[in-house]
Every structure is written in C-alpha cells, then in structure tokens.
C-alpha cells in the first residue's frame, strides 16, 4: 500500500466551475461534498428506514422531509434520495444493514453534484429550462421532484421561497452551469 501523502484531491463538479452570483437577484452556490443514498423499498422497509435514518421518508408524492441536517426526498413511490452531511455514509449504511425487510440502499454520494440556487429572480432563471410551474402555490417550499433543466435531468427541491437545491449527474454539471449562466445573464446588472 502506497503511503498517500498528500491525500488525493477531491473535485466537486460544480466547485470546479466559475462562480455565478448577481447580487441579491440570483446566485448559484456549489453545495460541495455530501453524503447521498438512493433508498428503495416498500411498506415496512420505509418505516424501518425512518428509524435507521432519523428522518421518515415522506409518503406524499414530491415532498421532502428534513431534520438535523438530514433529508429524505420523495422521488418515486418506492424511491427516496437521502441526503446527509459529508462523512456520514458509513454510519448510515451500517444502520440500514440492520433492516431485515427487503430494500435497497445504494451510495450515490459522488454520482450527483448539487447547487444552491437563490435570489429574488431564482424562479425566473429556472424557468428558462424547467418546464414546471414554479409559482409558490404550485411548487411550495418543501416540494421536490425529478424534472428537467434544459436537456439535463435534475432533482429540484425548494428549500425556501427564493432558494432551491438542484442536483444533477456530475458530468452534467458544466452543462447545467452553462445554461444557468446564459439564463441569468440579464440579471448581471447592478440591483
């Protein structure tokens, strides 16, 4: 075993791209390293997952639940994206190994990359490529869903009136970033 000093460089797909911030109107900030799992299961497995993860996976379509920096996002009727701070992967995986009903837990911490999108024009910028109605009545705080941004598949989660988390496959990050830069260009003037 080679002695690894200095440690291997770790590259977040969005952090490697130029920053994108236009004052209070729009900003895209890399979320950075995070723990992510896809949890799949039915019925009792979902109850068991709630205990193992500390956040109950929502049964309602397109809703997220969060507690103590962990979140469970409904992506499908038997599919949830579990989010936690970087470094908690082993603990979470160990807890799920105790579940004795059929389920699936797969580490995708490195599969996705994420941005926090915020600002008074955040929905305007997203509407350049997302075909969903992002009006607060149609896409309230706490809603999450897989959808599209231009030609990239994304997961969009509304954290606040003017703040979203966007996840995409890591190789799609430069594309998503490029389309956001184009869409946000008209807000690149002083407030």
């Amino acid at each position: 075993m080679v002695d690894l000093a200095p440690p291997l460089a770790r590259i977040d797909a969005f952090a490697a791209l130029p920053s994108l911030a236009h004052g209070s109107r729009f900003a895209a900030t890399p979320v950075g390293p995070a723990t992510r799992f896809v949890f799949r299961g039915r019925g009792p497995a979902v109850d068991a997952a709630a205990a193992a993860f500390g956040v109950a996976p929502p049964r309602d379509a397109c809703r997220a639940a969060e507690a103590a920096e962990r979140a469970a996002l409904w992506l499908g009727p038997d599919e949830w994206l579990l989010l936690a701070p970087d470094g908690e992967g082993e603990t979470i995986a160990a807890a799920f190994r105790e579940i004795d009903v059929p389920h699936s837990l797969v580490d995708i911490s490195h599969r996705n990359a994420a941005l926090t999108l915020s600002g008074s024009e955040v929905t305007t910028v997203l509407a350049s490529g997302c075909p969903l109605d992002l009006h607060l009545a149609a896409f309230p705080v706490g809603m999450c869903t897989r959808t599209l941004y231009a030609k990239a598949e994304i997961v969009l989660w509304r954290r606040a009136v003017d703040r979203f988390r966007l996840e995409c496959g890591r190789s799609f990050a430069p594309y998503v970033h490029g389309v956001l830069v184009d869409a946000a260009a008209e807000f690149a003037v002083a407030d």
Partner: peptide
C-alpha cells in the same frame, strides 16, 4: 431495485 451508479 435498480439504481444507476454510472457516475458514482
């Protein structure tokens, strides 16, 4: 259950 890990 199936999960894509292409980019993981």
């Amino acid at each position: 259950w199936l999960t894509s890990t292409t980019e993981q």
